[in-house]
Structures are given as structure tokens and as C-alpha cells.
Nucleic acid binder design. Structure first.
Lengths: 397, 397
DNA sequence: ATGAAAGCGCTAACAA
DNA sequence: TTGTTAGCGCTTTCAT
């Protein structure tokens, strides 16, 4: 039909097609009356004038394998086999061609949902993200997408706003959609949602943030190493009073970075009094600004701060500038993550780059592995970080 | 098992439960052998030691309505009715209670996919986004989510990278998942994907970017007004040579803003030679930097530029600084969007704020409307923009 | 107020 | 190589 051969056989099939489409209309209006009102509402009656015959046919619903089969003159299952690359080898070439052509004509697209019901797989994974507007997460999602799309998977992405209630609601929404697995960027040290996931036997991979236990695979940056590099950089510049503006407790990255900070400064022989750790109430600009106020109010002023992440660093720099102090001349600031625009801030932020896109890619890979083999012991993958020195750090004056 | 009350009735139910679970195991290993290998692989055999009875039961698959019904001692359809708030009114209170309790005990979650197959709705919408790492889009997605989640919808989000091939592939992946509708932020003036969507009768709402025709509803910022305000601001500061760094052609926002720019400068009596429009090759920093070079190379230097968006503005400011010129003293720069961190750039960017989150909310509302009533004529909704004056604009020197 | 039964679109074991 | 058949989990009409 694609190549317009004009022979009897062709004409016959052509007629068959029209009849079938008419049949579909009847099915819709007659026997199909059992469909619910919605379906009827959704139907769009697109009229095609068909050549000389001048027959108007209503394309009233999505074509199914059965429609394709009928048009191709084969059985439903044969059509299904032809449409599936893995099974199409079992069929005669000519049959496959005929079915494929029919599918094309009808603009057939398989119904993944129906397939999923049968095969018990949705080819969909869920991604739980604390906050999409935090520039840290989009690259992770890009990585995830990059890894899964070639394999026919799609990601359902949900925000949790660090709100346990939203988190559970979203979690259940994802489960109800039969996701094959979950990538979780919202993990807390003690996380009831993850306990439930464990109980239910859902495949889960954590990204960026971990939990207290080793229950799930985790892909994260090697924060410990990153902190060590950052502290070495500051000490190398001559700083002896360094504060750490830690992320909120309960989040693993905050805990790891804080503990790594204490270790690192100790290694350089700095006393705890000269290296205070202040907890921010969130991985936010405001959190950073508030914490920085405290540091500046303290008796023994720090000449440098290591922020728990770039947003905290930004808040800290603003707090510094608000007091008519200058960064880096009066206070050096180091961030964490190297989020987008870290290099466009004023001053350009010295920070520890975490390979977020790669985090996403590896997490997705691990998840797909786990979906196929749920009982392999959970791996932890720490990806290398890199200190990026820009303009927010300088020797103390 | 949850509340350890020890009375006869409870025990009875308890036994029933165990029997049922055992039954499930048998079904899995015996008659259930027709399940495919995957399903067997996925099953997790969690062993519970149950008190004194010491019975080990295997929770081998997700509970279904049938399981709930069996445990509650009612028919499948009764259980389904009880579980559905709209139909539970038809049942005796006590029956409903019994079913609900059974559901709770089994940790039952409905299978949205199976429901969708039956009802022809997936309660899922698709969102096509050019690039998630462009800070313009996350707030739109947040808005969408905010509007749809309370109604039980979830969003499948895909990136297209402005690549038509990826776009079509993703489009079909979404269709295959039976999305109820699509929110499209990737529209081009002439867009084959949208033509196909039109042919297939998919519910679509455009957000931020429109097309040449009025086929689909559109929610966008009132760019024309925003541009007018920006130009008035620059003229008010005394600028008489203003360049526009336009977005890439083919994208509606670029065309609208450019045309609005020409209108606005004409209204202020500025000659076309004094108000050149340079097209950037992308809504990117690099695009902005390259275009700014051209402007600075031109004979008649501009004292101010209106950028097509904030990324272009950022690129422009960098190009200015790279030539040892200063912004705003030598060149004033105005952006568009007021993306996140626009206020943290150096200098803080004067820009036109577009209410992105609201765009998302309204687009989602419109889409839900359209899903229920596909034949209403498409509306266009332009939301008000607001000029935010910061430090990147000043009188010419 | 509840049960019986059919069917959404697809796949896969079995049969021919 | 292809057809037959059953069933995934859910909803919904019809019957009781």
C-alpha cells in the first residue's frame, strides 16, 4: 500500500480497510455502548474523505493489535509477534511486512499499559527528588534519563519538598503506577518510606544521599575526599580558623561532610575551637546566611568557611557582604557541588565539583541491574569529586 | 497481626489470613507456573515467623482486590466498590469497614495501570521540556505538579534537548503509556510533532512557547508587555542606542519578543539603525556572548542591550567584561524571565519576571479541562510580567 | 446490598 | 509458521 501498485489484490485490501474502519464505528456506537461516558467524550471524530469512493470514516479510538491484525488479515497473536522485534523472527518475512505496513497505516502505537499488565513490568521507574528547583538535581535527572531511555524506560519524577507527608503520598502514587523501581534522592538517616519499600520488596537505588544502614545500593560523590581537598586548599592558603556551615542533620551528606571536616582539620593540627561546625536549618541560601551570622558573631572569627553546599555558600557570601565585609579578602568561602551558575556568582565560587550527571547514570544502571536481579548484595558507588578553585578563596589578610 | 489483640474472632481472621497467604504461594508455584520467568525473578520471599504458631508465610506478590476480597470474605466486585470512595456508599458500612481493614492488613495499593486499562484513563500526563537544567523550567514543572497531584494525576517528564528526533521518540513513549494529555514547552513555529498530536486527537496545552497557529491552548507570559516595560526603562535612563539579542528563530518567544522590541523602540522614536536586532544561535550563555561580540564590533556601539532571556544576558555580561568594559557603566543589560540566581549574578540582573510557576499551574488546569471537554475552543492565556530593576542597568555615561 | 460475568489490550504457553 | 486460549487486575453492567 505504501508503494502504490494498482492491482486487484491491492484494491481488495483497500476495501477491507474501509470496511474495517466502518466496523469500528459501529462497534463504538452499537456494542461499544458499554464503554463509559469518558471514553465517548474523549473520542475525536476526524473525517477523512477517501479518494473517489468518497467514504467518510470516523477514526474513533486508538487502533489495537486486533485492528492491525484484521487489516493485515492475520490473527491477533501473529500481529503481536510481528510487532515485537524479539519474536518477529518466528514469522515469515512477508507476514511481518504485511503487519508492519498495516500498523503504519493505522498509526498504531502499542499500549504499554496493557503490556505491563500482562508482563508485570511497566518499563517505568520513579524518581523521588527533594526539590527540582535546586540546581543540583536536574543534572542527576538528565543522567537518569540518558541511561534509561535507550532501554525503553521512562521516569516518573516527583518532588517531595523534604516533606515526609508529600513523600509518602508520592511514593504510593508511584507504587500504584507499578513502577519497576525507584531512584531516591530524598533519603534521610532514618526513613520510614524506605523501610516500607524494603518490606514491599521494591527495587530501590539511592542517589546522592544515603541512609544509616547499607540496605540499598547508593551512588554518591566521594564527599569525604572532597572535603579533605577543600580543607587542604584553605590550610594551604594560610587559614587557621575555619568554620563549617553544615547541612541539616538527618541528611547523610550533611553528616558525612561534617565528620570529614572534623577529621581533615584535625589532620592539619587545627584545634576544635578554631574549627567550629554550625548546623544550617536547611540546604538553602537562608540557612547559610543565618549560620554565617552566627560564625561572624562568635568571639573567635573564622577567616574561612567551608559550606555544606553551594546554596549555603551563596547565603554565607551574602551575609558577609551585608556586613560590609568582603569575600575573599575578609572571609574565604568554599562551596560544595559546583551547581550551575556557581561560576557566575560574585565572586565566582570555589567549590567541590560532584559529577551529578554521572551520579544519575550510574544510579539508573544499578537500578536496572537490580530490577533484573533483586537479590544481589547492594553496592555503594562513590564517584570522585574535584576541587574547582575560583575567586571566593584567598589567603587571609 | 498489626494490633496484637488476643480474642477468638481475631484469631479466626488471623488463620484465614495465613491460609490465604499459603494459598497464594501454592498459586505461585503450582497453577501460577504460567507466569513468566521475570515475575518469578521479581518475587521476594520474605519469611515471617508468626508467634507461637510458627507458620512461615511467603509474601510473594502484590496483593490484589481479589486477595483483599478473600480476606474480607466478600466478592471481588464488592471489595472494589468498597475501595472506591464514589461507590462505597452503595455498601453496608460494616462491609466497607471489613474490606478496608483487610486492605490495610495486606498493605493493598490499587493497580492504577489495570484500572487505566479498564477505564481508558491513566491519570498520568506527559510534560515535554526542552532542557531541565535550564532554570526556567523547574518552576513550571513545580506548578504543574502542584495543580495535578491533588487530583490524583502524575506527570511523566521528558527532555527533548531541542532535538526533533528525541522529541518524536519521547512523544511516542508518552503516547504508548496512554497519557491522558500533554503539556508541551517545546513548541516551534512549525512543529510536526504537534501536527501528529492534532491528528491523533491527543489533548495538548502549550506552555511558554506557542506555535504559528491557534490550534492548541497556550499559557505564556505577556512578553509584549514585558518588552515594552524593559524598553521604557532603558529609554527612561537615557539610552538611545539599544540592541536586542534575540532568541533563536523558530521559537515563538524569540519572534514575539523581537517584534515587540521593534514596536517599542519605534514608539520611542528610535531609528532602526540605532536599535539593531541580533539573533543568537540558542537561548544559551554562549549564544548571548557571541551575539554581544557582534554588537560591540558594530560601528555604532549600543549603550544598552535587551537580551532574549537571562542566559543570553549572562553571556552578554561576560562578553562585556571580557573586553574590560563594565556593566552597567559602559553597557546596560536587561534579561528576561528572572530565573533563579538572576539576583546573584554580578551585577545583579535587571530582568523581566515571568511567573513560571503560575504558568505551570494554569497550563495544568487548562489541560485537565481539555481532557474532560476536548472540543472547547482553545484559549490563550497571557500572564502578566513585571520588570525587576537591579544593578545591571544605569544611565549611559 | 451483593454476586456473576464480561472485557479493557496485550502476551505467551500450548496446540496444530 | 500460525492460531487458540487464557488471564494480568480492575471496573461495571446486569441480575439477584
Amino acid at each position: 500500500m505504501l508503494d502504490r501498485q494498482v492491482d486487484a489484490a491491492h484494491m481488495a485490501v483497500e476495501r477491507h480497510h474501509e470496511v474495517m474502519l466502518e466496523h469500528l464505528c459501529f462497534a463504538e456506537d452499537g456494542a461499544g455502548a458499554c464503554r463509559d461516558a469518558r471514553a465517548v467524550l474523549r473520542r475525536r471524530d476526524i473525517a477523512h474523505r477517501h479518494g473517489a469512493a468518497d467514504i467518510v470514516c470516523h477514526v474513533s479510538r486508538r487502533p489495537t493489535v486486533s485492528d492491525v491484525a484484521e487489516l493485515a488479515g492475520v490473527h491477533r497473536s501473529t500481529a503481536a509477534r510481528a510487532l515485537n522485534p524479539t519474536t518477529s523472527g518466528l514469522l515469515k518475512r512477508e507476514t511481518v511486512a504485511r503487519v508492519l505496513e498495516a500498523a503504519q497505516r493505522l498509526q498504531y502505537t502499542p499500549n504499554t499499559i496493557a503490556r505491563g499488565l500482562r508482563t508485570n513490568r511497566s518499563s517505568t521507574i520513579g524518581a523521588l527528588i527533594p526539590d527540582l528547583t535546586n540546581p543540583l538535581f536536574p543534572p542527576i535527572l538528565r543522567g537518569i534519563e540518558e541511561a534509561i531511555m535507550p532501554l525503553g524506560y521512562t521516569a516518573l519524577i516527583v518532588n517531595t519538598d523534604n516533606d515526609p507527608e508529600r513523600e509518602t503520598a508520592n511514593f504510593h502514587a508511584l507504587l500504584a503506577r507499578q513502577v519497576d523501581g525507584l531512584i531516591v534522592a530524598t533519603a534521610r538517616q532514618h526513613d520510614p518510606m524506605l523501610d516500607e519499600a524494603q518490606r514491599r520488596g521494591v527495587a530501590v537505588v539511592l542517589v546522592n544521599r544515603g541512609t544509616g544502614s547499607r540496605t540499598f545500593p547508593l551512588v554518591a560523590g566521594d564527599d569525604r575526599e572532597g572535603v579533605r581537598d577543600a580543607v587542604a586548599h584553605l590550610v594551604g592558603l594560610g587559614h587557621r580558623h575555619i568554620a563549617h556551615l553544615a547541612g541539616p542533620s538527618g541528611v547523610s551528606t550533611a553528616a558525612v561532610r561534617a565528620s570529614a571536616f572534623r577529621e581533615a582539620v584535625a589532620e592539619h593540627g587545627l584545634a576544635p575551637e578554631a574549627t567550629p561546625v554550625v548546623e544550617c536549618h536547611g540546604y538553602t541560601e537562608q540557612g547559610g546566611a543565618d549560620a554565617m551570622q552566627q560564625v561572624m558573631d562568635a568571639r573567635q572569627g573564622a577567616t574561612a568557611v567551608l559550606a555544606g553546599n553551594d546554596l549555603i555558600a551563596l547565603g554565607a557570601m551574602r551575609a558577609v557582604q551585608a556586613r560590609e565585609l568582603r569575600c575573599p579578602q575578609d572571609v574565604s568561602v568554599v562551596g560544595f557541588n559546583d551547581m550551575r551558575f556557581a561560576d557566575a556568582l560574585s565572586p565566582a565560587l570555589t567549590t567541590v565539583r560532584v559529577p551529578h550527571r554521572l551520579l544519575g547514570i550510574e544510579a539508573a544502571r544499578l537500578l536496572l541491574e537490580r530490577i533484573d536481579a533483586p537479590d544481589t548484595p547492594p553496592k555503594t558507588l562513590l564517584l570522585q569529586c574535584e576541587l574547582v578553585v575560583r575567586d571566593s578563596t584567598a589567603p587571609p589578610t
